Computed example of a mutant assay.
Amino acid sequence: MKLNRRSALGLALSCGMAWATSGWAQTYPERTVTLVVPFAAGGSTDLVARVLAASMSKDLGQQVIVENVAGAGGNLGAGQVARAEPDGYTILMGTVATHALNPLMLKTKPYDPQKDFAPVSLLVLVPNVLMVNPELPVNSVQELVDLLKANPDKYSYASSGNGTPLHLSGELFKSMAGVEMQHIPYKGAGPALNDVIGNQVPIMFDNLPSSSSHIKAKTLKGLGVTTKERASSFKELPSIDETVKGYETYTWNALFAPAGTPPENVARLNKAALAALSDPDVKARMGEFSATIVGSTPEELGKHVQAEMAKWEPIVKSVGVTLD
């Protein structure tokens, strides 16, 4: 079969493009990958990210470095990744805050949680925990409810910031238990924990991973976990649902890339994430702070985000939380 000059040129270009695409798919990543954590260092999301990044680095053959971009309840870091070059070299450790709560509460939306991101993998589910300073004269969820009802508006609770899952955990508790507390937002779990330990604020909702060491050291008193079931690493802690029926909140961590990231790069990141989650050392670390390993396909994470927004929307409306 004879080819004219134009057909031959077209065939050559097609073959070249196919070769180049194959080469890109095989060589990614060729340099360091930055994993943006949209919260301060030391919190639950940061802990999960650092454990995962170390293991993913081995599988990818390139270093995955964690960069903390805190601010605006996670929106600053998430927005930065949404606007990043969609090449797979800047990815996000997303949470229920960045991909469900914030988009539901914010009047001005800095990004679309579904359109502006390429889902990679759901990683872990993490319980939250209700804690108090040891000087507060309560030893159970019921005793705290009784104290708050007897002293309306006298006590306050800390969280890692306005609109975070921990803030919503407190507001939902107030609504369902019929109590009043003033919310004191901080710029992350670390500074909030410091003030609760120092008894500047007596009550706090936090992620179990970042507060477990304080509970074990008895510098904070754990009253109950926010999941329906008790946490595997703290069987002695009841669930709040055992006292306040129907109460349940938790957070989750997942990997996202900017929308438009090549599917082959997303698939490579997904493979590395799933390999990390099956690493015995990673499993042990996650188990230490009761994070339940999940793992998923990109498509499953996309459906998860959609379901989480549908779940939280009526809760956000019921507690009336809006953010500028």
Rank of each mutant, 00 (worst) to 15 (best):
S239Q: 07
L237V: 08
P209D: 11
S210I: 10
S239N: 04
Y186S: 03
L237Y: 02
I240E: 01
I184K: 05
D195K: 07
P209K: 06
V201H: 02
G190V: 14
W252L: 10
S239M: 05
D195I: 04
P202F: 05
A189L: 09
L208R: 00
G260Y: 12
G188A: 09
N199H: 15
V196I: 14
N199L: 08
E236V: 06
A217I: 08
S211R: 01
H214P: 00
T243H: 06
G198N: 15
P202N: 06
G224N: 08
A192Q: 07
I203R: 01
K216R: 15
S212C: 05
A231N: 06
N199P: 06
P191S: 10
P258I: 00
L223M: 13
E229R: 08
N199E: 12
G198F: 13
A257V: 08
V244A: 06
T243S: 12
G222V: 09
S232I: 11
T249Y: 02
I215G: 07
T219D: 10
G260V: 11
G222T: 08
I215F: 13
P209M: 14
K218F: 10
F256M: 12
G190E: 14
I203G: 00
A217H: 10
Y247R: 03
V201A: 07
T251D: 12
N199C: 10
S239H: 13
T249N: 14
T226P: 05
A259C: 11
S233I: 06
P238M: 11
L220F: 07
M204K: 06
H183S: 14
V201K: 00
L208T: 02
Y250I: 02
T226R: 00
G224S: 10
E236G: 01
S233Y: 05
T243P: 03
G260D: 07
F205S: 04
S213D: 14
K245M: 08
I203C: 10
A259R: 08
P185S: 14
S211E: 04
F205L: 09
A231Q: 03
K245E: 11
P185Y: 08
I184S: 11
A192Y: 03
